[in-house]
Write a protein that binds this DNA or RNA. Structure first.
Length: 428
RNA sequence: GGAGACGUGCCAGAGCGGCCGAAUGGACUUCACUGCUAAUGAAGGGUCCGGCGAAAGUCGGACCGGGGGUUCAAAUCCCCCCGUCUCCGCCA
């Protein structure tokens, strides 16, 4: 949720943000008037309520006929209080509804427009020239089958389309990648977390997902639970309704979990291989920090992602996602996209978002701040950020970019220790 | 799956339907005392929302797991949900 007070003081900022997103600008005006209504209805209710409480004391003190007399008098007042409270609850509800629909205020510098309006921050590495190497690149599935790493057919037999088995070196490669990511995280002060993958609706909503309308989310109707699409959900919910003692250093978690996505709107897209699947594993970074440190922490997250890409020796580019493609919670988002030779394009491997105080406000996660004069201090919303360290999809880029003419795959040096020193994934 | 107990402030733990934002301990902060630590004495605390105020503040409202209800009035009575614990059964 956005900060309504901030919106009221800076409506122009929010209008501009909505415009850049291609979202509804009139929401700004609607929130301003809904808040005015809320305030006046609260004042009306509170005055009546104070009167009722004062009356209550007289009733308690009185007895006999006098008490009966007072009781008769106060009945009408009680009805008025009820009505005023209902009106004020309704006004609060209206504002809350608008607030929930309003996406995060974008950060300065985010390119305006939709999916294709991203700006490229940088391009790293050299795209491999397979014609110079004298052979035609095989796609990741063909390689995966040659080296016994991926079995899509049996995945479909057991679970349906977009399911797969990773076996043999495929299973080992995924684990190796995740472990390497975890080691990088540990080296940088992250606390490793194995998180729940089924969460309650409030947790899902709190993170910014709409369980009612989001077709991407698997729902377990009988139990009113939802399968997470990323451990971000569990890690954001982890500190819900808490007041954190954030020191100088942010709290950094590295969440390891399986992720589930329905891919409802993507029928026919990426149907081959493991590019787009219903279930995959992911190592996710999640940060709680002070609002003023959020942007610099965002840069750090991006840097760690790039370190991972460097370790697996992939050519990639970094894009600054356009406003319209940010989603509800992000104020800014950088994606790292690796080159996929057989698609002759860059595909997303990591994504890091700065959600500023947006998620924290909905989840009610605050920090204790020290007052200027010393140790007292109030509370304020924290900022949250997230970013990807590794996912199953990375196998696609690794297999394709490091393949040999016979279908075997060279293991990047940094990954070899995690595969027991294996230098090549051989054809079976 | 069956039976039961419980959910109060940072923690422990009281709380007849009105005098309860809430006793009492402990922890914590500040002050005093002691050469330091400890001990002792005194004082002080939550969160959110609204009004007024430049601010410190001040006045008012809400919050005793969550949501409904009964009542002039609910931490206290009733219902539903969530969670924790104990016993039995079942499964691994």
């Amino acid at each position: 949720m956005i900060d309504v007070k901030h919106l009221i003081e800076n409506p122009d900022l929010y209008v501009a943000s909505q415009r850049a997103r291609g979202a509804d600008e009139s929401l700004v005006e609607q929130i301003v008037s809904a808040d005015a209504e809320r305030r006046s209805s609260i004042t009306a209710f509170e005055e009546l309520r104070a009167e009722q409480k004062a009356f209550g004391k007289r009733v308690a003190a009185a007895k006999g006929d006098e008490k009966q007399q007072l009781l008769a008098e106060v009945k009408e007042l009680s009805a008025n209080v009820k009505a005023a409270e209902a009106a004020s609850d309704e006004a609060k509800g209206r504002l809350d509804g608008l607030q929930r629909r309003f996406p995060n205020l974008i950060e300065d510098g985010v390119p305006a427009g939709g999916e294709d309006d991203f700006s490229t921050v940088k391009t790293v590495g050299t795209i491999r020239d397979f014609s110079a190497d004298g052979f035609t690149a095989r796609d990741h599935l063909e390689i995966g089958e040659l080296i016994g790493a991926i079995d899509m057919e049996r995945g479909a037999k057991v679970s349906g389309s977009r399911f797969y088995f990773l076996k043999g070196v495929g299973a080992r490669l995924e684990l190796a990648l995740m472990q390497m990511g975890l080691d990088l995280a540990l080296k940088n002060g992250f606390i490793p977390m194995m998180t729940p993958t089924l969460v309650r609706p409030e947790t899902m909503q709190g993170t910014g997902f709409d369980v009612e309308h989001d077709d991407e989310i698997y729902k377990l109707e009988r139990d009113d639970l939802y399968l997470v699409g990323t451990s971000e959900v569990a890690l954001a919910g982890y500190h819900a309704d808490e007041i954190l003692e954030l020191g100088e250093e942010p709290i950094r978690y590295a969440g390891w979990s399986t992720c589930y996505r329905r891919e409802a709107g993507s029928a026919g897209k990426d149907t081959r291989g493991i590019i787009r699947v219903h279930q995959f594993n992911k190592l996710e970074m999640f940060i709680y920090t002070s609002p003023e440190k959020a942007a610099e922490e965002h840069a750090r997250l991006l840097d760690w992602e790039e370190q991972m890409l460097a370790m697996v020796e992939l050519p990639y580019r970094v894009i600054d996602t356009a406003a319209g493609d940010l989603g509800m919670s992000a104020a800014r988002k950088f994606d790292c996209e690796a080159w996929v030779p057989t698609q002759e394009t860059y595909r997303e491997l990591t994504s890091t978002s700065n959600c500023t105080t947006f998620q924290a406000r909905r989840l009610n996660i605050r920090e204790r701040v020290a007052a200027e004069d010393g140790s007292k201090g109030g509370t304020r919303m924290v900022a949250t950020l997230n970013g990807t360290l590794a996912t199953t999809r990375w196998l696609v880029a690794i297999l394709e970019n490091h393949q040999n003419p016979d279908g075997s795959v060279n293991v990047p040096a940094a990954l070899q220790p995690y595969l027991g020193g294996l230098e090549v994934l051989p054809v079976l």
